[in-house]
């Protein structure tokens, strides 16, 4: 690694030579020359600091890698025969084994997602996963968000230093799905796809809010599709999922990619609308946003909005699971804690 700063380059040479002689390799990270460089950083004028700081960090990283490398060489365990089914000299009772089935478990979010996908599959929907890193076009542009539009603020998106986006909704796949299945429409068949995926929002964590969670998107396009179809389809899915008859209600909402847009609620299946903790005593649970796909979104995918209309929706999965089991903190889902995970099968 070549250092541009003369001073740092000199220290690098000195330290690397010293490293070879050191008994305890870790000591190189405590070298006084290295500390002196960090102290020097504070005295520099502010314009020079970022570059100097970057190079000191690069040097520290290089030294750290050398320490790790030495450690790995010195303390590595002896090589083994990786083609063998078990280690040499192991008694029969000590051969490797799988763990008992009763300790195993599937992640509850994934189990729920499988169930949800199965219902939609039975209703005639194919499925495809959404992306975990995407661009502005798919996140906003193809979905009728004009540049600089205030609606973009509602999404609290994470961005990368290269200008890519961590998707804040699974709608990033709408344009791709519509384009890929346009041919269906020409053959007199509908576009019917659900899209599960991980999404990200720049939000502070608490018991009800996570920055990483799962959504399920849905898209249905055909000739003569209307808003009544939308409500009926979602009602049918939710009745199947909860295994009982439900009342539904919609409230007008606003999304740039649907017109009209709705928030969709069902009568609380846990108390049959009488009022309980789950529905905060209101008797209703608001579950998802939906609407008729905006003509601009259809046009962007090359679909004639005069002839074809469709609807779309987005639903959060964590909430379904939390309500079902009475889970008190959404952060457990990504915690990898066996205390939590082994409660599910």
């Amino acid at each position: 690694m070549a250092y541009q700063n003369q001073q740092i380059a000199e220290v690098a040479d000195v330290l690397k030579k010293r490293f070879a002689e050191l008994e305890n390799k870790n000591d190189i990270l405590r070298a006084t020359e290295l500390k002196a460089l960090f102290d020097e950083l504070k005295t520099l004028p502010s314009e020079e600091r970022p570059k100097f700081g970057q190079e000191i960090n690069a040097l520290r990283q290089e030294l750290q890698k050398m320490v790790m490398g030495a450690q790995d060489e010195d303390e590595a365990l002896p090589a083994i025969d990786i083609t063998a089914p078990f280690d040499v000299n192991t008694k029969e009772s000590e051969r490797p084994s799988l763990l008992p089935t009763e300790t195993g478990s599937k992640h509850p979010l994934m189990t729920e997602l499988e169930e949800v996908l199965d219902i939609f599959y039975r209703m005639g929907f194919t499925a495809v996963e959404s992306r975990e890193i995407d661009d502005d076009y798919h996140m906003f542009g193809a979905l009728n968000f004009p540049e600089g539009h205030p609606a973009r603020d509602d999404y609290d998106t994470f961005m990368t230093t290269d200008g890519l986006i961590a998707p804040a909704h699974t709608s990033t796949m709408q344009n791709r799905v519509l384009k890929a299945q346009k041919a269906n429409l020409e053959q007199g068949k509908p576009v019917a796809t659900v899209i599960p995926g991980r999404v990200f929002r720049n939000e502070d964590l608490d018991a009800r809010h996570e920055h990483t969670f799962y959504q399920l998107e849905g898209v249905y396009v055909d000739e003569g599709v209307h808003a009544g179809h939308l409500i009926a389809t979602l009602k049918t899915f939710l009745q199947e999922y909860y295994g009982k008859e439900l009342d539904v209600k919609t409230q007008p909402f606003y999304f740039p990619f649907t017109e009209p847009s709705f928030e969709f609620a069902i009568s609380c299946p846990f108390c049959d609308k009488k009022g309980c903790n789950v529905c905060s005593q209101t008797g209703w649970i608001e579950l998802l946003g939906c609407g008729m796909i905006h003509p601009a979104v259809l046009h962007e995918a090359g679909i004639d909005s005069e002839k074809y209309t469709g609807f779309a929706w987005g639903m959060g999965i964590e909430r379904l699971v939390m309500m079902k089991y009475g889970i008190e903190d959404v952060r457990y889902f990504e915690s990898a804690r066996l205390d939590f995970l082994r409660q599910f099968s």
């Binding site: 992640h107 499925a127 495809v128 975990e132 990504e334 995970l341």
Partner: peptide
């Protein structure tokens, strides 16, 4: 998605625990 569901089932039966961690 089908493959993932099948893998999940095999590994859970083998006593392993499925986790999700941050990206």
């Amino acid at each position: 998605l089908e493959t993932k569901a099948a893998v999940r089932a095999v590994l859970a039966k083998a006593g392993a625990n499925g986790v999700l961690t941050y990206s």
